[in-house]
């Protein structure tokens, strides 16, 4: 099993959900981006999604879009990100995925991206605008390299697509909680648990829920029904809010709070 699948299995064995934490590489700049990455691992994230900045992130809301533009302004691209992961791996074994749009990977070169990712210690990829139908050339290189490719499913995915993702996807299934772009929301959508149950009817792979999950209470609620919760924009915002202060301490504290929520140790009411 992959490091990602192992971690989900370990969480399940302990009776807790997996906390999947997203942050943008190189945000707010290269040095502080590395600080934030280590702080997320130190806080106890089970899986890290490290964002690869793209100039035109059409699936993302304002918070992540602006993070991408800050990272690009600082010159963060795949070579810098692989270097960051290589250093990170000297200290942490937290499973780590790169979350990216397709064009930066395509231009880097599919085979080269797989080789360099494996060498750096990346466990997998999640490519926002590469649905299974277009992923053939990528999967042909990523699978033999031992990289997990995580695909997404959402409220509009019919049974045929759920079966397709269950068949070709690796690591876990990313369940998009709602229609729309990334970003914090006050409430979980009412039909979310039906969606999770539907997906779980077709696959034994772990199912983690993202889009709009921002508070410990939401993480706890999600983890009562799914195998993991994904927090992105709220963490990116926390990094930005503390960029000029106690960055590592603030990030670690927030992640620790979110992780505790996956273990059922969280307030049940929204903050």
């Amino acid at each position: 099993m992959s490091r990602i699948a192992d971690r989900f299995a370990a969480c399940k064995a302990r009776g807790e959900g997996a906390l999947v934490a997203y942050l943008m590489a190189g945000d707010p700049d290269a040095a502080r981006g590395r600080t934030a990455l280590s702080a997320v691992a130190a806080g106890g994230a089970d899986v890290i999604e490290l964002g690869v900045p793209f100039s035109d992130p059409m699936a993302d809301g304002r918070v992540i879009e602006h993070a991408a533009l800050r990272a690009l302004a600082g010159g963060t691209h795949l070579p810098e990100i692989f270097a960051t992961v290589r250093v990170f791996r000297q200290e942490y074994d937290t499973p780590l995925l790169l979350m990216t749009y397709w064009n930066p990977v395509l231009q880097y070169g599919i085979a080269r991206a797989c080789a360099d990712a494996v060498a750096a210690g990346v466990d997998g990829f999640l490519i926002s605008d590469l649905p299974p139908e277009e992923a053939g050339p990528w999967l042909a290189a990523a699978r033999p390299a031992g990289l997990d490719t995580v695909f997404l499913l959402g409220p509009t995915s019919p049974e045929r697509r759920i079966r397709l993702v269950a068949e070709v996807g690796g690591g876990f299934v990313y369940c998009i909680s709602r229609l729309g772009v990334t970003g914090a929301r006050a409430e979980l959508p009412p039909d979310l648990f039906t969606l999770i149950d539907t997906i779980k009817g077709f696959t034994d792979k772990p199912v983690a829920v993202g889009f709009g999950i921002s508070t410990p209470a939401q993480v706890a609620e999600v983890c009562a029904h799914a195998d993991g919760a994904i927090v992105g924009s709220a963490l990116v915002q926390t990094i930005l809010d503390h960029a000029d202060g106690e960055l590592a301490g603030a990030v670690t504290a927030f992640v620790r709070e979110l992780k505790a929520a996956t273990q059922g140790n969280a307030p049940t009411a929204s903050k």
Binding site: A59, D129, L130, P131, E133, E134, L152, T156, S157, R161
Partner: peptide
Amino acid sequence: ERGYFGAFGGCYVPETLKTPL
């Protein structure tokens, strides 16, 4: 049938847009 003109075209969109398209 996949929307390709030779090597060009396709449908590179987030999952949520696949079914509407």
